[in-house]
């Protein structure tokens, strides 16, 4: 990977700094509450850091901006006509397997199901669906070696477009069965990571992104919300914490030291947390950055399964040793 990342000395700044994203995110808060949008949003409400977001959109290279507009045009089909006759579901297990097969055939790299949990909704968000189908789509690892440049930004947008296309196709199929379904993709008012974790697709990494065995963190997430009755997957333990606790790749490589080596209390949960105020301005400068997810050992192609197996075995061994 190239290492000539942009300088942490940024060529832009707020005159009056907005309220700290860490405060809005609830860093240090012990009570549970819903998350609040700060930077990326769907336009539903004025965000505290919206000026920086607009600035980010305007300094993006042409290709990234163009793909973003094409993606938005595609997303008009995220919801649509529902067939009048509703397909009867005799076996939830069968329909869940059918939906997963369809998602994979449409191009998803991985798929899981979960109920729509409240942790996936932002403060004030009202979404009325029963179930979530979460899909992952891998980014090209060769292209993502060029993180902090327009080339990686373009690959990220391409992945967003592909996952949008997949999610839209799947939502159309479900609606053709007579059930409500809506695809939530890039920029939607939905937190994908809690759903992906609950759908058994992976775990939260030290860098604040999802880690899965198939693609590490080098992927995009989209969700289809539906009333179609589905069996739910369960959260899995792939030993992400076992590695993250000792590994310092992302903390060392992050040019602005936004990643912490310890978990923090955030809105009542002890979890990995990335310093928003340090991360997001640099993210803006570095065409969406992505250094942490690309240097992550889990993101090396075809590494995740063996790494997870090795770490789980090591954990078992250590447990046995302690017992003896």
């Amino acid at each position: 990977m190239k290492k000539d990342f942009p300088s942490p000395e940024l060529p832009f700044a707020y005159r009056d700094q907005p309220l700290s994203g860490n405060i809005i995110n609830g860093l240090g808060e012990t009570n549970k509450r819903a998350a609040t949008q700060i930077f990326h949003g769907s336009g539903a409400r004025e965000l505290e850091w919206s000026k920086l977001e607009l600035f980010f959109g305007l300094i993006n290279p042409f290709k990234v901006s163009w793909l973003n507009l094409v993606n938005r045009w595609m997303l008009r089909d995220a919801d649509g006509p529902i067939a009048k006759s509703k397909r009867k579901i005799t076996s939830q297990a069968d329909i869940t397997a059918e939906i997963k097969d369809l998602a994979l055939s449409f191009g998803a790299g991985s798929v899981g199901t979960s109920p729509l949990i409240k942790e996936a909704l932002y403060k004030g968000g009202e979404i009325n669906y029963a179930n979530a189908i979460v899909i992952l789509y891998p980014m090209d690892s060769d292209e993502m070696q060029h993180v902090t440049t327009g080339r990686a930004g373009t690959e990220t947008m391409r992945a967003y477009m592909e996952i949008s296309r997949t999610a839209i196709e799947l939502s159309k199929k479900i609606r053709a069965m007579g059930w409500r379904a809506r695809a939530y993709c890039e920029g939607a008012d939905l937190l994908h990571i809690p759903l992906a974790i609950n759908a058994g697709l992976g775990q939260l990494g030290k860098h604040g992104s999802l880690i899965c065995r198939e693609f590490g963190s080098s992927m995009r997430i989209a969700t289809i919300l539906t009333d179609l009755p589905l069996d739910h997957d369960r959260p899995i333990d792939i030993a992400v914490d076992d590695l993250c606790i000792g590994c310092r790749r992302c903390t060392i490589d992050c040019p602005v030291d936004a990643i912490s080596d310890e978990k923090h209390m955030v809105r009542g949960d002890d979890k990995w947390y990335v310093d928003f105020d340090k991360c997001v301005p640099y993210f803006t400068e570095a065409v969406g950055c992505g250094i942490c997810i690309e240097v992550c050992p889990w993101s090396k192609p075809d590494r995740g399964f063996s790494l997870s197996e090795k770490l789980l075995k090591k954990r078992e061994k250590n447990k046995l040793k302690e017992l003896i």
Binding site: G43, L75, G80
Partner: peptide, 13 residues
């Protein structure tokens, strides 16, 4: 202010 979804996602249009 309406979100992108509220503006352009229409169920059963």
């Amino acid at each position: 202010m309406k979100s992108f979804e509220e503006q352009f996602y229409i169920e059963n249009p």
